[in-house]
Design a protein around this nucleic acid. Structure first.
Ligand code: MN
Ligand code: MN
Ligand code: MN
Ligand code: MN
Lengths: 151, 151
DNA sequence: TTTGAAATATAGCACGTGCTACATTCCCGT
DNA sequence: ACGGGAATGTAGCACGTGCTATATTTCAAA
Protein backbone atom coordinates (compact mmCIF):
# COMPACT_ATOMS: atom_id res chain seq x y z
CA UNK A 1 0.00 0.00 0.00
CA UNK A 2 1.13 3.56 -0.62
CA UNK A 3 2.68 5.49 2.19
CA UNK A 4 0.58 8.32 3.51
CA UNK A 5 2.70 9.65 6.31
CA UNK A 6 4.12 11.93 3.70
CA UNK A 7 2.06 13.67 1.03
CA UNK A 8 2.07 11.63 -2.15
CA UNK A 9 3.64 13.21 -5.16
CA UNK A 10 0.69 12.06 -7.24
CA UNK A 11 -1.90 14.05 -5.32
CA UNK A 12 -2.18 17.66 -4.33
CA UNK A 13 -0.87 19.38 -7.42
CA UNK A 14 -2.60 20.86 -10.39
CA UNK A 15 -1.59 18.55 -13.23
CA UNK A 16 1.01 20.64 -15.05
CA UNK A 17 0.82 20.98 -18.82
CA UNK A 18 4.28 19.54 -19.21
CA UNK A 19 5.31 17.10 -16.53
CA UNK A 20 8.84 16.83 -15.23
CA UNK A 21 9.06 13.39 -16.79
CA UNK A 22 8.21 14.82 -20.20
CA UNK A 23 11.08 17.29 -19.96
CA UNK A 24 13.59 14.67 -18.91
CA UNK A 25 12.37 12.15 -21.46
CA UNK A 26 12.70 14.79 -24.15
CA UNK A 27 16.24 15.59 -23.05
CA UNK A 28 17.19 11.91 -23.07
CA UNK A 29 15.83 11.47 -26.58
CA UNK A 30 17.86 14.42 -27.81
CA UNK A 31 20.98 13.18 -26.09
CA UNK A 32 20.83 10.03 -28.16
CA UNK A 33 20.82 11.95 -31.44
CA UNK A 34 23.32 14.66 -30.51
CA UNK A 35 26.29 12.55 -31.55
CA UNK A 36 24.82 11.89 -34.98
CA UNK A 37 24.21 15.59 -35.41
CA UNK A 38 27.82 16.45 -34.64
CA UNK A 39 29.08 13.79 -37.02
CA UNK A 40 26.89 14.81 -39.94
CA UNK A 41 27.77 18.46 -39.46
CA UNK A 42 31.46 17.65 -39.34
CA UNK A 43 31.32 15.32 -42.32
CA UNK A 44 29.63 18.06 -44.30
CA UNK A 45 32.39 20.49 -43.33
CA UNK A 46 35.17 18.09 -44.28
CA UNK A 47 33.47 17.20 -47.54
CA UNK A 48 33.31 20.84 -48.48
CA UNK A 49 36.91 21.49 -47.47
CA UNK A 50 38.53 18.37 -48.93
CA UNK A 51 35.95 16.80 -51.22
CA UNK A 52 35.58 13.85 -48.88
CA UNK A 53 35.58 13.02 -45.17
CA UNK A 54 38.31 10.63 -44.05
CA UNK A 55 38.08 8.69 -40.82
CA UNK A 56 41.34 10.12 -39.55
CA UNK A 57 40.22 13.69 -40.13
CA UNK A 58 36.87 13.05 -38.48
CA UNK A 59 38.58 11.53 -35.46
CA UNK A 60 41.11 14.35 -35.12
CA UNK A 61 38.48 17.08 -35.40
CA UNK A 62 36.29 15.41 -32.81
CA UNK A 63 39.16 14.66 -30.47
CA UNK A 64 38.54 10.90 -30.40
CA UNK A 65 40.54 7.90 -31.62
CA UNK A 66 40.00 6.43 -35.09
CA UNK A 67 38.35 3.27 -33.87
CA UNK A 68 35.78 5.39 -32.08
CA UNK A 69 35.12 7.40 -35.24
CA UNK A 70 34.98 4.25 -37.33
CA UNK A 71 32.43 2.61 -35.07
CA UNK A 72 30.32 5.74 -35.06
CA UNK A 73 30.40 5.87 -38.84
CA UNK A 74 29.09 2.31 -38.94
CA UNK A 75 26.17 3.43 -36.79
CA UNK A 76 25.58 6.43 -39.05
CA UNK A 77 25.58 4.05 -41.98
CA UNK A 78 23.12 1.74 -40.28
CA UNK A 79 20.85 4.74 -39.76
CA UNK A 80 21.07 5.67 -43.42
CA UNK A 81 22.88 8.95 -42.80
CA UNK A 82 26.09 8.15 -44.68
CA UNK A 83 27.52 5.89 -47.35
CA UNK A 84 30.98 4.44 -47.02
CA UNK A 85 33.11 1.62 -48.35
CA UNK A 86 36.06 0.09 -46.50
CA UNK A 87 39.24 2.14 -46.72
CA UNK A 88 37.41 4.90 -48.54
CA UNK A 89 35.95 8.22 -47.48
CA UNK A 90 32.61 8.83 -45.82
CA UNK A 91 29.81 10.56 -47.71
CA UNK A 92 26.48 11.91 -46.50
CA UNK A 93 23.26 10.51 -47.89
CA UNK A 94 20.43 12.89 -48.66
CA UNK A 95 19.08 12.30 -45.16
CA UNK A 96 22.50 12.92 -43.70
CA UNK A 97 22.99 16.08 -45.71
CA UNK A 98 19.59 17.33 -44.60
CA UNK A 99 20.49 16.73 -40.98
CA UNK A 100 23.82 18.48 -41.48
CA UNK A 101 22.13 21.54 -42.97
CA UNK A 102 19.64 21.76 -40.13
CA UNK A 103 22.31 21.30 -37.47
CA UNK A 104 24.62 23.84 -39.02
CA UNK A 105 21.85 26.41 -39.20
CA UNK A 106 20.99 25.76 -35.57
CA UNK A 107 24.65 25.94 -34.56
CA UNK A 108 25.13 29.32 -36.20
CA UNK A 109 21.90 30.74 -34.84
CA UNK A 110 22.74 29.69 -31.30
CA UNK A 111 26.16 31.30 -31.52
CA UNK A 112 24.66 34.50 -32.90
CA UNK A 113 22.03 34.62 -30.17
CA UNK A 114 24.56 34.06 -27.42
CA UNK A 115 26.80 36.81 -28.76
CA UNK A 116 23.80 39.11 -29.16
CA UNK A 117 22.96 38.86 -25.47
CA UNK A 118 26.55 39.61 -24.51
CA UNK A 119 28.33 36.27 -24.29
CA UNK A 120 31.99 36.53 -25.33
CA UNK A 121 32.56 34.91 -28.73
CA UNK A 122 34.96 32.35 -27.33
CA UNK A 123 32.50 31.11 -24.71
CA UNK A 124 29.63 31.28 -27.20
CA UNK A 125 31.45 28.95 -29.58
CA UNK A 126 32.33 26.56 -26.80
CA UNK A 127 28.90 26.41 -25.17
CA UNK A 128 27.00 26.28 -28.46
CA UNK A 129 28.50 22.90 -29.27
CA UNK A 130 26.38 21.38 -26.52
CA UNK A 131 23.46 23.78 -26.43
CA UNK A 132 22.63 23.52 -30.13
CA UNK A 133 21.23 20.01 -29.80
CA UNK A 134 18.60 21.02 -27.28
CA UNK A 135 17.13 24.04 -29.03
CA UNK A 136 13.62 23.28 -30.31
CA UNK A 137 12.07 24.66 -33.47
CA UNK A 138 9.96 27.00 -31.39
CA UNK A 139 12.98 28.37 -29.59
CA UNK A 140 14.87 28.62 -32.86
CA UNK A 141 12.17 30.81 -34.34
CA UNK A 142 12.19 32.98 -31.24
CA UNK A 143 15.95 33.43 -31.61
CA UNK A 144 15.49 34.45 -35.22
CA UNK A 145 12.81 36.95 -34.33
CA UNK A 146 14.98 38.39 -31.58
CA UNK A 147 17.99 38.78 -33.85
CA UNK A 148 15.88 40.40 -36.56
CA UNK A 149 14.49 42.90 -34.07
CA UNK A 150 18.05 44.10 -33.45
CA UNK A 151 20.64 45.98 -35.47
CA UNK B 1 52.98 8.31 -45.89
CA UNK B 2 50.43 11.09 -45.89
CA UNK B 3 48.14 11.55 -48.81
CA UNK B 4 48.79 14.70 -50.76
CA UNK B 5 46.29 14.45 -53.57
CA UNK B 6 44.03 16.34 -51.20
CA UNK B 7 45.11 19.21 -48.97
CA UNK B 8 45.92 17.93 -45.51
CA UNK B 9 43.83 19.23 -42.66
CA UNK B 10 46.95 19.79 -40.59
CA UNK B 11 48.47 22.38 -42.89
CA UNK B 12 47.22 25.59 -44.35
CA UNK B 13 45.21 27.01 -41.51
CA UNK B 14 46.02 29.52 -38.83
CA UNK B 15 45.95 27.51 -35.59
CA UNK B 16 42.66 28.58 -34.03
CA UNK B 17 42.56 29.61 -30.38
CA UNK B 18 40.05 26.93 -29.55
CA UNK B 19 40.22 23.90 -31.77
CA UNK B 20 37.19 21.95 -32.87
CA UNK B 21 38.43 19.04 -30.80
CA UNK B 22 38.46 21.21 -27.68
CA UNK B 23 34.81 22.10 -28.18
CA UNK B 24 33.74 18.52 -28.72
CA UNK B 25 35.84 17.23 -25.86
CA UNK B 26 34.31 19.84 -23.59
CA UNK B 27 30.80 18.83 -24.67
CA UNK B 28 31.56 15.16 -24.07
CA UNK B 29 32.84 15.89 -20.57
CA UNK B 30 29.70 17.81 -19.74
CA UNK B 31 27.47 15.09 -21.13
CA UNK B 32 28.92 12.66 -18.61
CA UNK B 33 27.98 14.90 -15.66
CA UNK B 34 24.59 16.05 -16.92
CA UNK B 35 22.80 13.05 -15.47
CA UNK B 36 24.28 13.64 -12.02
CA UNK B 37 23.20 17.25 -12.19
CA UNK B 38 19.61 16.31 -12.96
CA UNK B 39 19.56 13.77 -10.16
CA UNK B 40 20.96 16.09 -7.50
CA UNK B 41 18.61 18.87 -8.51
CA UNK B 42 15.65 16.51 -8.40
CA UNK B 43 16.67 14.97 -5.09
CA UNK B 44 16.91 18.45 -3.61
CA UNK B 45 13.41 19.25 -4.86
CA UNK B 46 11.92 16.05 -3.46
CA UNK B 47 13.71 16.51 -0.16
CA UNK B 48 12.24 19.95 0.21
CA UNK B 49 8.75 18.80 -0.78
CA UNK B 50 8.58 15.56 1.19
CA UNK B 51 11.50 15.65 3.61
CA UNK B 52 13.19 12.83 1.74
CA UNK B 53 13.72 11.52 -1.78
CA UNK B 54 12.35 8.04 -2.43
CA UNK B 55 13.54 5.92 -5.31
CA UNK B 56 10.03 5.56 -6.68
CA UNK B 57 9.46 9.31 -6.71
CA UNK B 58 12.81 9.95 -8.35
CA UNK B 59 12.04 7.38 -11.03
CA UNK B 60 8.57 8.73 -11.73
CA UNK B 61 9.72 12.35 -11.98
CA UNK B 62 12.52 11.41 -14.34
CA UNK B 63 10.37 9.11 -16.42
CA UNK B 64 12.57 6.04 -15.92
CA UNK B 65 12.05 2.70 -14.19
CA UNK B 66 13.05 2.17 -10.56
CA UNK B 67 15.98 -0.11 -11.34
CA UNK B 68 17.41 2.64 -13.51
CA UNK B 69 17.00 5.19 -10.73
CA UNK B 70 18.41 2.78 -8.19
CA UNK B 71 21.50 2.10 -10.24
CA UNK B 72 22.04 5.81 -10.82
CA UNK B 73 21.77 6.47 -7.09
CA UNK B 74 24.49 3.89 -6.49
CA UNK B 75 26.70 5.82 -8.88
CA UNK B 76 25.83 9.10 -7.13
CA UNK B 77 26.75 7.45 -3.85
CA UNK B 78 30.04 6.22 -5.25
CA UNK B 79 30.79 9.79 -6.31
CA UNK B 80 30.04 11.08 -2.83
CA UNK B 81 27.01 13.10 -3.90
CA UNK B 82 24.40 11.27 -1.82
CA UNK B 83 23.99 9.07 1.22
CA UNK B 84 21.52 6.21 1.25
CA UNK B 85 20.77 3.00 3.09
CA UNK B 86 18.85 0.06 1.62
CA UNK B 87 15.09 0.53 1.62
CA UNK B 88 15.49 4.07 2.90
CA UNK B 89 15.39 7.48 1.27
CA UNK B 90 18.19 9.21 -0.57
CA UNK B 91 19.88 12.27 0.92
CA UNK B 92 22.32 14.73 -0.58
CA UNK B 93 25.79 15.10 0.90
CA UNK B 94 27.27 18.56 1.20
CA UNK B 95 28.87 18.10 -2.20
CA UNK B 96 25.58 16.92 -3.64
CA UNK B 97 23.68 19.82 -2.12
CA UNK B 98 26.24 22.24 -3.52
CA UNK B 99 25.83 20.75 -6.97
CA UNK B 100 22.05 20.93 -6.65
CA UNK B 101 22.18 24.60 -5.70
CA UNK B 102 24.42 25.45 -8.62
CA UNK B 103 22.35 23.47 -11.08
CA UNK B 104 19.09 24.94 -9.88
CA UNK B 105 20.44 28.45 -10.18
CA UNK B 106 21.64 27.71 -13.68
CA UNK B 107 18.33 26.12 -14.61
CA UNK B 108 16.34 29.15 -13.47
CA UNK B 109 18.68 31.59 -15.13
CA UNK B 110 18.51 29.77 -18.45
CA UNK B 111 14.72 29.73 -18.37
CA UNK B 112 14.62 33.43 -17.54
CA UNK B 113 17.04 34.26 -20.33
CA UNK B 114 15.11 32.25 -22.88
CA UNK B 115 11.86 33.91 -21.91
CA UNK B 116 13.53 37.31 -21.95
CA UNK B 117 14.53 36.91 -25.59
CA UNK B 118 11.01 35.84 -26.52
CA UNK B 119 10.88 32.07 -26.18
CA UNK B 120 7.43 30.87 -25.06
CA UNK B 121 7.49 29.71 -21.44
CA UNK B 122 6.51 26.17 -22.35
CA UNK B 123 9.37 25.75 -24.83
CA UNK B 124 11.77 27.53 -22.50
CA UNK B 125 11.06 25.03 -19.72
CA UNK B 126 11.41 22.11 -22.08
CA UNK B 127 14.63 23.23 -23.78
CA UNK B 128 16.27 24.43 -20.58
CA UNK B 129 16.37 20.91 -19.21
CA UNK B 130 19.03 20.06 -21.78
CA UNK B 131 20.63 23.46 -22.34
CA UNK B 132 21.35 24.17 -18.68
CA UNK B 133 24.15 21.61 -18.51
CA UNK B 134 26.19 23.25 -21.25
CA UNK B 135 26.11 26.84 -20.03
CA UNK B 136 29.54 27.89 -18.77
CA UNK B 137 30.25 30.28 -15.91
CA UNK B 138 31.18 32.97 -18.39
CA UNK B 139 27.93 32.59 -20.28
CA UNK B 140 26.01 32.48 -17.02
CA UNK B 141 27.43 35.82 -15.98
CA UNK B 142 26.56 37.25 -19.37
CA UNK B 143 22.99 36.07 -18.94
CA UNK B 144 22.83 37.74 -15.53
CA UNK B 145 24.17 40.98 -16.91
CA UNK B 146 21.69 40.90 -19.76
CA UNK B 147 18.74 40.27 -17.46
CA UNK B 148 19.84 43.04 -15.10
CA UNK B 149 20.07 45.48 -17.99
CA UNK B 150 16.38 44.89 -18.68
CA UNK B 151 13.17 45.76 -16.84
C1' DT C 1 57.20 -2.91 -59.27
C1' DT C 2 58.18 -3.39 -54.81
C1' DT C 3 57.50 -1.88 -50.13
C1' DG C 4 56.84 0.54 -45.87
C1' DA C 5 54.42 4.04 -43.46
C1' DA C 6 49.92 6.02 -43.00
C1' DA C 7 45.18 5.00 -43.03
C1' DT C 8 41.67 2.07 -42.00
C1' DA C 9 39.44 -1.96 -39.91
C1' DT C 10 38.55 -5.24 -36.24
C1' DA C 11 38.73 -7.46 -31.67
C1' DG C 12 37.93 -6.98 -27.15
C1' DC C 13 37.65 -4.36 -22.69
C1' DA C 14 35.25 -1.00 -19.60
C1' DC C 15 31.60 1.37 -18.15
C1' DG C 16 27.11 4.09 -18.52
C1' DT C 17 22.34 4.08 -19.08
C1' DG C 18 18.34 2.07 -20.18
C1' DC C 19 15.17 -2.11 -19.79
C1' DT C 20 12.46 -6.62 -17.82
C1' DA C 21 12.05 -10.22 -14.56
C1' DC C 22 12.41 -11.62 -10.20
C1' DA C 23 13.71 -11.41 -5.07
C1' DT C 24 13.52 -9.12 -0.84
C1' DT C 25 12.01 -5.88 2.61
C1' DC C 26 8.91 -2.69 4.74
C1' DC C 27 4.88 -1.13 6.96
C1' DC C 28 -0.25 -0.16 6.97
C1' DG C 29 -4.70 -2.07 7.74
C1' DT C 30 -6.88 -5.49 9.72
C1' DA D 1 0.96 -9.42 15.34
C1' DC D 2 0.58 -10.58 10.85
C1' DG D 3 -0.40 -10.70 5.91
C1' DG D 4 -0.10 -8.62 1.66
C1' DG D 5 0.73 -5.06 -1.49
C1' DA D 6 3.97 -1.27 -2.33
C1' DA D 7 8.63 -0.08 -2.33
C1' DT D 8 13.09 -1.29 -3.01
C1' DG D 9 16.89 -4.15 -4.46
C1' DT D 10 19.38 -7.33 -7.67
C1' DA D 11 20.44 -10.06 -11.84
C1' DG D 12 21.10 -9.99 -16.36
C1' DC D 13 20.36 -8.27 -21.16
C1' DA D 14 21.14 -4.73 -24.83
C1' DC D 15 23.43 -1.25 -26.77
C1' DG D 16 26.25 3.18 -27.00
C1' DT D 17 30.51 5.36 -26.61
C1' DG D 18 34.94 5.52 -25.38
C1' DC D 19 39.64 3.13 -25.22
C1' DT D 20 44.11 0.04 -26.57
C1' DA D 21 46.16 -3.42 -29.26
C1' DT D 22 46.52 -5.61 -33.39
C1' DA D 23 45.54 -6.81 -38.27
C1' DT D 24 44.79 -5.36 -42.87
C1' DT D 25 44.84 -2.35 -46.84
C1' DT D 26 46.29 1.44 -49.59
C1' DC D 27 49.33 4.34 -52.18
C1' DA D 28 53.35 7.03 -53.19
C1' DA D 29 58.39 6.98 -53.10
C1' DA D 30 62.13 4.56 -54.26
MN1 MN E 1 27.37 19.80 -31.02
MN1 MN F 1 27.77 21.97 -33.89
MN1 MN G 1 18.70 18.94 -17.06
MN1 MN H 1 17.25 21.13 -14.53
Amino acid sequence: MPRDDLPSAAEGGIPPETSDADRFTNARAIRSTALFEDYTELIADLSEEFGEARITDIARRLGVTHPTANKAVLRLKREGLVNSRPYRGVFLTEAGAAMARAVKARHRLVVRLLIAVGVPAEAAEMDAEGIEHYVSETTLRAFEAYLNSKG
